[in-house]
Write a protein that binds this DNA or RNA. Structure first.
Lengths: 212, 212
DNA sequence: GCCTGGTTCAACCAAACGGTTAAAGACCTG
DNA sequence: CAGGTCTTTAACCGTTTGGTTGAACCAGGC
């Protein structure tokens, strides 16, 4: 399959546009985003957008496709094999939080698409599934295996994965709210993110570990 | 203080408009929403919007203020006193998930505002705080007290509350994605929500309970 | 009936927006 | 420097969108 990174053969200008578009779409949504705002953010003339990307729909589709691929790959990419389940969980949380942190705009765009109904999302996932890329079941399987092996309590793997994803993601989604309600997060967001990794592992690991 | 429900003295038509606006703003965002779409959803003429609410900004502000109040109140409203921490947690999860389920549009609007930068949000919170409504610290205090009493492990109350909120909220935010990745959620969403309550309590309770 | 208040609507307007174009600029090749 | 290609731009066009207005409608009181 072709690399999901459709930006590899982009020129400097194209990349500027792409990044700006991702940013604006992520903030304002596909409908709310103005082509002028994207042009301004990319520091180019508005006509350039239409030179490199035919129209708004094309630009959005390209940005969203890249984002969706990036996102689907992130689950498996963050999941590295480790001797114990505890280590596997720790590495996944660290990796996934880091991924979201360095792809905040991608994450926001994904949420925008969900808020808007997620029609493009289903389409994209079906396309990816048809071309052999299975959705991220590996993480679910890992949990299921750990249950089977008695390494963790008998929990529902699907729900558990959803809970892990939720806790790793949502505080980025609600970053403004979090920063208002929790001043330390405003003063030093990076430190807050690191502290959060520790807390999440601690909470979830103890939530899953067996009881004697 | 005045009741946060600014809709109490609304006429039938006003309420229709308000509900439609909330829905459209929640889906499309404050900028993406079209006045025509709101009018259509409310099943009235476009000019009526401007008769009852001066302009788009006013309409949005009114809708958002209501939503923000509703949301801030929901934390405390879902927190009922119970003899043990376990029961308190269970009741809170049930109540909060139910609140979000029956106020999905409110929740989506809140997320939209966060994605857009959350400027109005900070403004709103500052106004509420100044007028005596403290942000929901009660939940944080409950956790802190339980730690103090040795009912649960020594965890960071702020992070813990954020984790609880995340898990109760995010699966509603990402409902389309969840339904694609987990077919049972598509077939019977209500049942999925109920199952999720059980899972969340189980996971978080065991995550917090002391170890011998 | 007819006036008077509050509602509802179709038609309209100006501004904003997505998208086009023709021409100028930059840059290489000969 | 001449010719040609690839970039970049300002000005422009048609449509959509937020917002206005004046007329129709529909009570109820006189």
């Amino acid at each position: 399959m072709p690399p999901p990174d459709s930006r590899s053969d982009y020129s400097e200008t194209e990349r500027q546009i792409f990044d700006a578009a991702l940013d604006v779409f992520a903030r304002e949504g596909r409908r709310g985003a103005r082509m002028q705002a994207i042009a301004d953010a990319a520091d180019i003339n508005k006509a350039m957008l239409h030179y490199y990307f035919r129209d708004k729909a094309t630009l959005y589709e390209e940005v969203f496709t890249y984002t969706a691929c990036q996102f689907m790959a992130s689950f498996d990419a963050s999941l590295k094999e480790a001797p114990t389940f505890a280590e596997t969980l720790r590495v996944f949380i660290d990796g996934y939080v880091d991924f979201v942190r360095s792809n905040e705009a991608c994450m926001r765009l994904m949420v925008q698409e969900n808020l808007a109904g997620g029609t493009l999302l289903g389409q994209q996932m079906r396309k990816a599934t048809d071309s052999g890329d299975a959705p991220p079941t590996i993480l679910v399987d890992t949990i299921a295996d750990a249950v089977q092996a008695g390494e963790i309590r008998p929990v529902d793997p699907d729900h558990t994965v959803l809970s892990v994803i939720s806790t790793c993601l949502y505080f980025f989604v609600a970053q403004p709210t979090v920063q208002i309600m929790h001043p330390p997060a405003e003063e030093d967001w990076e430190a807050f993110v690191e502290a959060r990794k520790d807390h999440l592992f601690d909470l979830i690991y103890h939530g899953l570990a067996p009881r004697e």
